[in-house]
Design a protein around this nucleic acid. Structure first.
Lengths: 210, 210
DNA sequence: TTGTTATTGTGAAAAACGGAACAATATGAT
DNA sequence: ATCATATTGTTCCGTTTTTCACAATAACAA
């Protein structure tokens, strides 16, 4: 089994680049085109494909449409992914309003919040009270949730939705969560990303001076 | 020089965990406490520290306050970091309203947008027209920018702020950017993170069945 | 003091990863 | 038909990263 997270991220990037190339009218692509497009090496592109049994044509490159089909299948994009957002604060609402997911086959079908003032059942994407989340997850067979609650509430919320059957959580709380058994947690942490950036900016500046 | 991004991310996580432990009244910590707190191994904690010349006490662990001082210094948190946000749409505004940065010594001092309707000079964090960004960056010596513009505008915006002197960009556009010489780009891509999560959820589910 | 124990710090081993190289081969030219 | 060329698929190799293992040693107990 592939455990290399970076490899899967590269597949997503290839996929996105392929859509752009397709929109420009290209029909086939070579490994070094893709490498340029995502900032890698041609070897690595070919190796990534080979890991998943994707093959092209000697001297002919890869057919973009069939390549996209295979990548989409690997990435689980051959079925609509229903996702919920837990926490309807600034970040949660921004994510619910974001229109970029739909074209990726990801549909946010509801938000949840503990604050009664945030409840809104008539929205295109309704915001429901937290008490209903367990039933909702079961009824709609939700497997993926985005967690955008304050850090103090994050672990409890994570435990709750894991127990209700969620299998993957994208966590925006600035806090590492203990994943319940059988539930994968990916963290998106803007503070940490910024700290990282600051570190490397500082280091390269120092190095440049020396 | 350390080039290992994951290692620096771990330092941030250690730092965050240490603050939590400190708030709970702890004064010292052992490598395996930290490993538990961030989800790693005790060896790795010690090795990460050893890379940066951080040492503890045999049988006594590490003093939390002095450890925090050292980590904060490595992560550039001994001075306030002024940051601008480019793009005042949903994500840009959510980031500007987010209060979590201040306690990390990161201060968003202005936003910029091309849409005149979004301009607001009297806000605590003013939103200024894009034409002023170059002068602003130079005047205020801005080194870090958060890019939250639509993908179509992202590369152009990145080029502009790099040329104006920005040294690091945190890019929220769902698109890999070509970094100008001397400018580091970190990407935060929620779609890709979700795809990644979906992939691993699917794979572990399949593996479990088999 | 002496012995026991817990924990660090690091050197060595193992694993994971990415990149270079090249044989295999399909395509197109002559 | 033959040759030259471009590109893939994969093996091999170097590097990076993680884990293991244990000597060194500080703290504590008897």
């Amino acid at each position: 089994m592939i455990t290399n997270k970076n490899c899967i991220i590269r597949l997503s990037r290839y996929k996105n680049a392929l859509y752009r190339l397709q929109a420009l009218g290209f029909v086939k692509v070579f490994s070094d085109n893709l490498a340029d497009a995502v900032g890698g090496t041609a070897s690595q592109v070919r190796k990534d494909f080979s890991i998943f049994g994707i093959s092209g044509n000697k001297k002919g490159g890869y057919q973009i449409d069939s390549l996209l089909e295979k990548l989409n299948s690997i990435l689980g994009k051959d079925q609509l992914q229903k996702v919920i957002v837990v926490g309807a604060g600034h970040i949660g609402s921004a994510l619910m309003r974001y229109r970029g997911f739909e074209k990726e086959g990801i549909k946010i079908i509801a938000g949840f919040d503990i604050d009664p003032a945030k409840i809104n059942r008539s929205n295109p994407i309704p915001v429901l009270p937290l008490e209903e989340i367990k039933a909702f997850i079961k009824t709609n067979n939700i497997r993926i949730a985005i967690l955008a609650v304050p850090d103090i509430a994050a672990q409890q919320a994570a435990d709750m939705i894991c127990a209700a059957g969620v299998k993957g959580i994208l966590n925006f709380a600035p806090l590492g969560l203990k994943g319940a058994e059988g539930c994968i947690i990916n963290n998106v942490n803007v503070e940490i990303e910024l700290e990282n950036l600051i570190y490397f900016v500082n280091v390269t500046e120092k190095t440049r001076k020396a």
